[in-house]
């Protein structure tokens, strides 16, 4: 009974992860410029990775292996955020005078 519940939750998480990865790839095509594509890639893909990591955790052969999987997720999050920032900075530096709106709504 409990096993069945765990498997059901795992399946839901795996499907959710796949959906978000697919959305990340869709974002690469639907969004109009590089910066908005980075938004899609960073947020959707990291959420997808999070769901897949959660789905895999009950399969971990040991506690250490489970924590290692979580560690890989954290490293991937940091990697993705850093890459996003670097690419965004490069894009903006390249197209200075491009579309930028100084919008201070505070």
């Amino acid at each position: 009974m409990f096993d069945g519940l765990v498997i059901a939750v795992q399946l839901v998480l795996l499907v959710a992860g796949c959906v978000f990865f697919a959305l990340g790839s869709l974002g690469l095509f639907r969004f109009p410029d590089t910066l908005t594509r980075i938004h899609a890639l960073t947020k959707a893909d990291n959420l997808g990775l999070g769901f897949i990591v959660l789905a895999l955790l009950p399969l971990a052969p040991s506690f250490a292996a489970g924590f290692k999987t979580l560690l890989i997720w954290v490293v991937a999050l940091a990697a993705s955020a850093t890459s996003a920032h670097l690419v965004a900075r490069a894009v903006r530096g390249n197209t200075s005078g491009g579309p930028r709106t100084e919008d201070d709504d505070g």
Binding site: L23, R30, T36, K43, N46, L47, G50, P99, R100, D103
Partner: peptide
Amino acid sequence: SVIAGVDVARRLLTPSLPIKPGEI
């Protein structure tokens, strides 16, 4: 981060693509 992913998903799946990119 869940809200962020769902937010991007919602914008992507809306046919009119409701985004208005800019910087602050």
